[in-house]
Simulated scan of single mutants.
Amino acid sequence: MSAPSARTVQACTACGMIDGISATRTPMTVAVRLTSLHRRRLREVWRSAGWPAQDIVEAELLAMGLLERQHDAAGRCTLRVTDAGIQTLAESAALNRAARSDHETLVEQVAQAMVREGRIAWRGLSLRARVVTGEVEGWQMAMPDVFSVRHTSVAAYLQPVVHEIKVRRADLLADLRRPAKRAAYLDMAGAVVYVLAEGIGRADEVPPECGVMEMRAGVLETLRPAPVRALPHEAGLPFAVWMALARATPVPMPESEQRRLGEDLSTLPDDLPDQA
């Protein structure tokens, strides 16, 4: 028996039969997990004219019903975010705001803890560090969540520390895959500590050159102390760091511990930390 022609196959496929065998395929339902890559593409389409990229990410968004194709009178195809896609964008934005709020809360708690220990702390600094990658040496900008030094008049006693705050496991794992970032922190500080929200990670997941703390029921607990190194700088810190600190405002002392001008210092509590 001769094989059917292409026209016959096309016609029979349209009616669902080829040589008496059903040519209709049963639609397959493939579960696609929505990732940050999908959400990013969804935002890009939302903010753009919707020209298709025709890659697998776009195909998955179309399959999930978050995007749909539209054709104009000239036959040009563009993409449009569906109502379900808009709902996904709104939910993603709400989750990001909540994560930022949790992160900022923990950053503030760590910064205040450093101040109560008698240290001078800063949030959101943008510092330049010298990083060596292989045999290549270069500069990299880093933004530690909390940077603190001891309140001292002796450069050798500064003990600069970087605290990196993580409240989501995905952010922690992504950060651990960035050795250059840790190298930048180690260039500007004698110790680096990861502070984790409860339950998002283990101490043994963090590289040994860093310490690990965890916030448990509102209390910072040390899971592994950070190795402390002396920085090879006569002034205690790299010059670029000193310049950044000169332009920045440190975290203020808690209101209950501040004193007004002219207030009797004999009323100061006896348990304030010693300062070298």
Rank of each mutant, 00 (worst) to 15 (best):
L61D: 00
A90M: 09
G85W: 04
E108N: 09
G65M: 01
G85H: 05
V81P: 06
G118C: 02
A49C: 09
R76L: 12
G65K: 03
C77M: 14
L95T: 01
L66Q: 01
A59C: 11
R41N: 04
S48Q: 00
E58Y: 12
C77F: 12
R47K: 08
L61M: 05
A49L: 13
H103W: 06
Q109S: 11
R116L: 14
E60C: 15
A49S: 09
V115A: 10
Q109V: 10
E68R: 12
L61I: 04
C77G: 07
R47E: 01
A73H: 12
D83C: 13
L42H: 05
M64I: 08
S48G: 12
S92P: 04
S92D: 03
L62E: 00
G50P: 13
E117H: 14
E44T: 07
Q109P: 05
E58D: 04
E68C: 15
G50R: 05
V110D: 00
V57L: 15
A99T: 03
R100Y: 04
E91G: 14
V81G: 06
M114K: 06
L106V: 05
T105A: 14
H38P: 07
L61T: 01
P52N: 00
R76E: 01
R47N: 03
H38N: 03
H103I: 07
A74S: 11
V57Q: 02
A49M: 10
L67T: 01
H38F: 11
D102H: 11
R100F: 11
C77R: 08
L89W: 05
A93Q: 04
L79W: 02
L79D: 00
T88V: 12
D72Q: 07
E68L: 14
A98Y: 09
G65D: 00
